[in-house]
């Protein structure tokens, strides 16, 4: 068992953010698995980082941009080819209430 176990509520919260339905059994299972994952990531804190500049990029690249030139898009058929349901050129999903962020 990991030292800092995630609570059940935390697991539920994560599942909600990912829009995944989870059963009570799964919550217990993921509680253990996710806690182990977090512990594993914690290995990183053993690295000495004093004097190291924080960064989110390691490629050394910067200012990679494109000119504002439009190019042809996919056709509507191509765009919709992976959609489970469509309607008059739209992708159709189950009703989503106004939870827009």
């Amino acid at each position: 068992m990991s030292e800092n176990s995630l609570t059940k509520d935390e697991v539920k919260h994560i599942a909600k953010l990912a829009n995944l339905p989870v059963t009570e059994e799964e919550i217990i299972k993921f509680q253990k698995q996710l806690s182990e994952t977090v512990d594993y990531i914690k290995t990183l804190s053993s690295v000495a980082t004093q004097g190291v500049e924080p960064t989110s990029q390691v490629t050394g690249l910067k200012n990679v941009t494109r000119t504002d030139e439009p190019a042809p898009s996919q056709t509507q058929e191509e765009a919709l080819s992976n959609a489970k349901n469509t309607h008059n050129g739209f992708i159709k999903v189950k009703a989503i209430f106004n939870e827009q962020t």
Binding site: N85, N88, G89, F90, I91, K92, V93, A95, F97
Partner: peptide, 13 residues
């Protein structure tokens, strides 16, 4: 753009 229509939502990207 989302268009809410009864029990479904239509999406235009």
């Amino acid at each position: 753009k989302l268009i809410h229509q009864g029990d479904s939502t239509l999406i235009d990207f």
